[in-house]
Amino acid sequence: MKMNQGVEWALHCCVNMAWLPGDASISSARLAELYKLPPAYLNKQLQALVRAGILVSVSGPKGGFQLARRPDRITVLDVVVAIEGREMAFRCDGILKNGPGGEMDEDYARSCLISQSMRHAELAWRTELARQTVAGIAQSIERRFPEARPNTVAHLLGTGSAG
Rank of each mutant, 00 (worst) to 15 (best):
M3K: 05
M3N: 09
M3P: 01
Q5I: 09
V7D: 03
E8V: 12
E8Y: 10
W9C: 06
W9D: 05
A10E: 00
C14W: 00
V15S: 00
N16G: 12
M17I: 06
A18K: 04
A18E: 03
L20A: 10
G22K: 15
D23L: 13
I26H: 00
S27D: 02
A29V: 01
A29Y: 02
R30P: 06
A32T: 00
E33R: 12
K36I: 11
K36M: 10
P38T: 09
A40K: 08
Y41L: 12
L42I: 05
L42H: 01
N43C: 11
N43K: 14
L46F: 06
A48H: 08
L49C: 04
V50K: 09
V50N: 10
R51V: 07
I54Q: 01
I54V: 07
L55N: 00
V56Q: 11
V56F: 02
V56G: 05
S57N: 14
S59Q: 15
S59A: 15
G60F: 07
K62N: 13
K62R: 12
Q66G: 12
Q66M: 14
Q66S: 13
Q66F: 02
L67T: 12
R69C: 14
R70I: 09
T75P: 01
T75Y: 01
T75A: 04
T75L: 03
V76C: 07
V79N: 00
V80D: 01
A82G: 06
A82K: 02
I83M: 10
E84G: 05
G85A: 03
E87Y: 06
E87F: 03
A89D: 09
R91C: 03
D93K: 15
D93R: 14
I95E: 11
K97T: 07
